[in-house]
Design a protein around this nucleic acid. Structure first.
Length: 419
DNA sequence: TCTGGGGTCCTAGGACCC
DNA sequence: TCTGGGGTCCTAGGACCC
């Protein structure tokens, strides 16, 4: 089993097309330019934390810190390139996230695993410009742990193989703080700390009863994996997703129903397009709006209802009107709303829905309409056509002050080589 | 003044049934 | 005052991941 992880992926993507960012501290900001979601090694060295609010980063102005708005079209496209290169090196690949993949290494002789991993690493670097590191282990959790060590250690040169020598396992686990184990988050790490469990090794030695009681069934699986029993198998063909969500923090809070409905309509439209692209239909819609959770001086609330959609559909008009009804029916005028979103639930493949004897005959007109709309958006870009009029400068629109061009996904942004 | 977005799974508790 | 036992299903919330 092998995990391959890009290093500081978003920051690395930005650097591929702007070499002036090399060796400089670079931070990529979340949507709305809110907080740090990716940091170059130099930014980490400055002590910048993941999730640190952007306004607190001004103190690094004199350190040459570069703040960039996030550019997900670019990262998504670069990710696809990296995955395509990785796929040529293994008979099976599970794309786990935008910057991580799990590869099947059966067939590579054990003695060659590390040198082979370094070859993959060099190839990805050369063909895409993205640096990656590789961890090899007998289970997914141990491979992830190996990957972390590969990133940390200079000597490892980007690849660590925990299967090479069984004697390495104990020191590797002892060097890993329990909170850095895959599956152990903040809450679980705190419980472990109270019980005197500090390292991955301590956790692996803990009694099953304590683990089940305090960390649940999931925690127990993590521990089994640390002990070398594979619980999570490779999944080359992940199934359809079960829900989809489009949500945004507003640029500024709003207090009127019209603004929240305008935002929700836009999110519902995007979410519907998302599930259509995957050939799915929704059985329920939930729209929601929340107040600003950081404003301790203001009253907090969340509104929204889950409304069934029968039969399931992915047509924008039906989804938008249901999302609006969800907000209207739960509306409370006394709050200032800072964030809203639309969830599509109970996703199914339309061909899997049993025929309803009493349903009115389906019209193929709305399907044809959606195909036409999606086709226009694909050719002309988002915003070329849509449902209803939406003010591009509305208060609720997100901020995004310094976004890099979409170098690889928009003709207008194509980099130009100078003679 | 300013704090992301999009997922999964599990669990506890309530509603309801006999 | 005393007031069963055992299921199922659903949902909200909490934990985790990136």
């Amino acid at each position: 089993m092998r995990w391959s992880t890009a290093e500081n992926f978003y920051a690395s993507c930005e650097r591929v097309f702007d070499p002036s960012l090399e060796r400089r501290p670079v931070v990529v900001l979340s949507g709305n330019d809110g907080c740090a979601i990716a940091r170059s090694a130099e930014a980490k060295a400055l002590g910048i934390e993941m999730g640190e609010p952007a306004f607190k980063l001004r103190r690094f102005e004199n350190d040459g810190l570069v703040l960039l708005s996030s550019n997900f079209p670019l990262y998504g496209d670069m990710s696809a390139r990296v995955m395509a290169v990785l796929a040529t090196f293994a008979p099976g690949i599970e794309v786990y996230s935008i910057d991580e993949a799990f590869l099947d290494v059966a067939g590579v002789p054990a003695a060659y695993l590390v040198s082979w991993a370094r070859c993959v690493r060099a190839t990805v670097r050369q063909w895409t410009g993205i640096p990656i590191s590789v961890g090899i282990g007998p289970t997914k959790t141990l491979a992830k742990l190996a990957n972390r060590l590969a990133k940390k250690s200079q000597k490892a040169n980007g690849a660590v193989d925990l299967t090479a020598d069984p004697a390495w396992l104990e020191p590797a686990l002892k060097r890993t703080p329990v909170g850095d184990v895959w599956g152990i988050g903040r809450q679980f790490a705190a419980k472990c700390g109270l019980a005197g469990i500090r390292s991955a090794w301590d956790l692996a030695q803990s009694p099953d009863g304590w683990i089940k009681k305090n960390l649940g069934a999931v925690g127990l699986r993590t521990v089994m994996e640390l002990r070398g029993f594979a619980v999570y198998e490779a999944d080359d063909f992940p199934g359809d997703r079960k829900s989809a969500c489009v949500s945004r923090t507003f640029g500024d809070a709003v207090d009127d129903l019209a603004s929240v409905k305008d935002a929700v309509a836009v999110f519902a439209e995007r979410c519907a397009a998302k599930i259509r692209k995957e050939g799915l239909a929704a059985g329920a819609v939930q729209a929601f709006a929340t107040t600003d959770r950081f404003r301790k001086d203001e009253p907090q609330a969340t509104i929204g209802l889950t409304l069934p959609l029968a039969p399931p559909t992915n047509a924008t008009p039906a989804i938008v009107s249901l999302a609006l009804r969800s907000i209207e029916r739960s509306w409370r005028p006394e709050f200032r709303w800072r964030k809203a979103g639309v969830l599509l639930l109970d996703l199914v493949r339309p061909e899997d829905i049993p025929a309803d004897l009493f349903a009115p005959p389906a019209s193929d007109r709305s399907e044809a309409l959606m195909q036409a709309v999606d086709g226009i958006v694909a050719r002309m870009g988002r915003g070329a056509i849509g449902f209803g009029h939406h003010d591009q400068n509305a208060t609720w629109r997100s901020r995004s002050a310094s976004r890099s061009p979409s170098w690889t996904t928009r003709w207008e942004d194509l980099p130009v080589a100078k003679a």
